[in-house]
Amino acid sequence: MRINRRAGTLFLLIFACILLFVIALAGEALSKPAELADFARKNLPPCLAHPFGTDWMGRDMLARTVAGLSLSIRVGALTAVLSGGIALLLGTVSAICGPWVDALVSWIIDLVLGIPHILLIILVSLACGQGFWGVIAGVALTHWPSLARLVRGEVLQLKQATFLRAARRLGVSRGRVLRTHLLPHLLPQLFTGLILQFPHAILHEAGITFLGFGLSPERPAIGVILEESMGYLAAGRWWLALFPGLSLVLVVMLFAAAGERLRLLLTPASAQE
């Protein structure tokens, strides 16, 4: 007998969440050591005392990486929730408020998808005067369209469902139908969408910070660390770029895998073993 796939997914998801939580906390605790410069130990390649090596100011790269991941996770979670909120709002509104609103929302979606994400994030970030909130706004405002389309499709489908029409006929108010019938059906989809959104958000935050539009260089963000490492590549200090990037990839991968499996579970065909 094969391993129960659903139980496996649940386990993976719980593990991913715990790991994220631990990294977020550890990053907070390590924010002081991450900034600690010690020129006596600068430019050390990876060794036992400093598994990720140290940089040109003698800062421990492991501490910096964890602090950076912690920051990425917080930014990722915040933006995923924000863009999920936008998607839920616009998707629902577009499905239930008539053809004009629907056309308008789909026009806005086309517009947002027409500008490459990274350019739009640069624009939004500039509008917000860069920095932390610039990144948050930029990433949140660019990641909602696909999820909004999904929500819209689901709501449209549910609108046709007999039990909802019956509820409306029975005189249940629109708001109540929305709360008691629509939301419970939408939540799993939305939740999965959020989890799948999370890696994208983190990657874009890292990208925009790397380009210099995002988090300020004083913060130990992964994007900042990698941007700095560029200057030392030719000098052969590979550890400055390798480990922080690899850690980011692993965290993102964990979530992408969990989200993907969750999505598969929600497609009806996957009930077949």
């Binding site: 796939r5 659903r6 009930a271 077949q272």
Partner: peptide, 11 residues
């Protein structure tokens, strides 16, 4: 015979 998932984790 088919094996498939029902509600929750049950097969």
């Amino acid at each position: 015979t088919f094996t498939r998932y029902g509600r929750g984790l049950n097969r």
